[in-house]
Design a protein around this nucleic acid. Sequence first.
DNA 1: ACCTCCTGTAATTTTAAAATTTACACCATT
DNA 2: AATGGTGTAAATTTTAAAATTACAGGAGGT
Lengths: 145, 145
Amino acid sequence: MHISTKCSIAIHCLVFIYEYGEKQKVTSNLLSLSTGSNPVIIRNIISSLKKDGIISVKFGTGGATLDCPLNEITLYRICKAIEPEFVSKLFGIHSLPSQLCPVGKNIHSVLDCSYQKIGNDLCDSLESITLKDIISDYRKCSIGG
Amino acid sequence: MHISTKCSIAIHCLVFIYEYGEKQKVTSNLLSLSTGSNPVIIRNIISSLKKDGIISVKFGTGGATLDCPLNEITLYRICKAIEPEFVSKLFGIHSLPSQLCPVGKNIHSVLDCSYQKIGNDLCDSLESITLKDIISDYRKCSIGG
DNA sequence: ACCTCCTGTAATTTTAAAATTTACACCATT
DNA sequence: AATGGTGTAAATTTTAAAATTACAGGAGGT
C-alpha cells in the first residue's frame, strides 16, 4: 500500500553498483553495510532486479554489476521489479462495506474509477525518472556533503 | 506511507452524506454500518473533514451535512484533511544508511530530489479529481448494480 | 429535571504487514 | 576440502493500522 522502502534500498544498491561495481566486488554483505539493512533483504532485492535483467550477479564467487544502460532503468521499472502489484497496493480500501447499502455495494467500483486514473498518472511520473537522473543527482549531492 | 484506507472511507462517507444527508440524519453509527468499519474511526475521519470545512456536524443531536460545493472538494483536499503529511509518508526510506559510505551519506538527499517531483505530480493528479466526478461515477455504477 | 441518543477523545488491545534473524543447501575459486 | 559467496524457506521480532473499550459532555424529547 505504499512505495516500499525496498524500492529506496534498490535505488541505493543500484547507485552503489554503478559507482563502485567496477572497482570492487559488490556483495550482498557490502550492500547490507552500506544500506544498513539485512543481507537477506538485500539478496531478495538483488534477486528481483536480476530477474528483470537490470543487473547480473556472478554465481558462487559473488558480485553484482549493472546489465543495462542507465537511461533504460526507470523508477517504474524498479518498483515493478521489486513488487509487481505495487500500483494496486498503493490505495488502501476498506474491505467490508455493507452490501445492503447502495453506497456500500458500489463503492469499490466507484473508487476504482478514480484510483485507476491516479495509478496511471503515478506510473507516468515514475516512468519519467531514470537512474541516469538519479546518478546525476548523486554526483551533485556528493560534491557538497 | 500509502494512501490510507481512511481516505477511501472518507470518500464513502461523503458520497453517503451527499446522497442521503437531506433525507435522514447521518450519524457515525450509520456510517459505521455502511462502511463496515468502527464508529470511532468514522468519528475521527468526520472530525478531520469538519476541521477542514468540508462538512459540518450538528453537535449533541448528531448528523453530518456537506458544507461545500461538490467541485471544491478534491481528492487532494480529502487526503490532506485526513493525513496532513500523507505525501511524505508515501515513500518508504531505509532509515539507517551508513554515514561512512559516500552513497549512504547522500542517499536521503538523492532520493528526496526524485520523490519530491513524484509527490508533486501525485498531488496534481489528486487535485484533478473532485467529489463531483465521484458522485457522477457513483450514479453510473448504481444504475447497473 | 432526567433520560436517551449522539459526538469527541483518550487509552488499550488486536490484527496484519514489514523487516530481521536463523538456518542451510549449493556454487566457484584457492 | 576450506572459504566466501548466493538463494530461499521458516520463524521471530518490530511496527503501524484498526478495532475496542471507556467515558465526559451537548441537545432534544418527555
